[in-house]
Design a binder for these strands. Structure first.
Lengths: 197, 197
DNA sequence: TCTGATTACTCAGTTTCTTGACTATGATGA
DNA sequence: TCATCATAGTCAAGAAACTGAGTAATCAGA
């Protein structure tokens, strides 16, 4: 039960991205938010989110209300309750689990001495290109969050600060992704041609 | 079924860390290897590894042999079979799944606007200290892998190159961990004192 | 001599995640 | 007009991972 805290965090930080400032999300919107911002530190599929929201509601940690729409299917909007905030507060104070990563590409690189590296090199370069795109996206997102403030100012006074800080981390990670990907691709490529001589 | 590939990669890359150059590991040694090198891109508990090795053996992707020891409990040493290598080769050529991260601390930071940040700041600083220790460890591991070669030389000709490259990534990640952790701790601390005025 | 660490593994139960559907409606674009 | 995308979900089966415990021997240090 750890996804629940990511969901609560997303709901609590809910002002930043959609501009409605309500801290209220539908399951569908939550899934979107997970794709963009939360994906930097937590990965979850929409089905998991719906299931988790249902569980959280049953336990009274979030409250949902039906919203009838004319042009769109009806939906349910969720917000964090007092009990939910208390639960999150307890989680925040507890010692965190070690972060963990799982990365197919690194598994492949680990065995680079034993397998054909040609496809791996391609994948590394694709990954780098994807990272590049994300870097640009994050740049835009950060600028938008900052508004007219410069970074230093925003870090001192801007709000919400949480999503901004995690987005900074996402940016740094993607830069690493890109740099490492290109570097490793170059190294492996170089070694292939050397080998072929 | 994804852990299996991490296990195969660890066995295939098995020369680097233990110096025996055999590509052979016991479940116990594998668990150690996962703690040090593989943990950079895959996290798994010993129980999982034993279970996975059993499955892999049943499918003929690894072969185990009993080793009787006098001073220590007997053990089983595993190496990757031809079928195992073929399986891994297919995995390496297939498009990789998106990497995924899960990080409690970032979940907490995401909700920094809604919760008491005092414990989070402490955790960030602990995390930074831990990262610092890992940075030093990785530095040593890399130096040992390089031997007398300098980095450029090693990247061109050194072996095994796979573990070296993934370790470089681990190092970069830990540096990010440390820098981000200290930065965020400082920002949140600063905002607390401002708030208190 | 007792404690704790290290080597070496096993098992069962539970939770969590992934996969791959399926249901609807309205809007958008070719 | 037809296809596809976006909204807004739900369901169920199976794979994978995690938790927590237990077994058993040797060795090093207090």
């Amino acid at each position: 039960m750890a996804l629940r805290h990511a969901v609560l965090a997303a709901l609590l930080a809910g002002d930043g991205s959609d501009g409605d400032g309500s801290g209220e999300y539908s399951g569908y919107q939550l899934a979107k938010a997970f794709d963009i911002g939360v994906a930097n530190f937590w990965h979850a599929l929409p089905q998991q989110l719906y299931a988790e929201l249902a569980r959280l509601e049953k336990e009274g940690l979030v409250a949902g209300r039906h919203v009838v729409q004319e042009t769109r299917p009806n939906k349910r909007m969720f917000r964090v309750t007092q009990a939910g905030l208390a639960e999150f507060e307890a989680f925040a104070a507890a010692t965190p689990k070690a972060s963990f990563i799982r990365d197919d590409l690194m598994v492949k690189v680990q065995a680079a001495d034993s397998v054909d590296t040609a496809p791996v090199i391609e994948q590394l370069e694709e990954r780098a290109a994807l990272a590049e795109a994300k870097i640009e996206l994050f740049g835009k997102v950060l600028r938008k969050m900052r508004g007219e403030l410069d970074e230093e100012e925003f870090l001192r006074r801007g709000e919400p600060i949480g999503p901004y800080l995690t987005c900074l981390r996402g940016l740094a990670l993607e830069r690493e992704n890109r740099d490492w990907g290109l570097r490793v691709a170059a190294v492996l490529r170089e070694r292939r041609t050397d080998e072929a001589r």
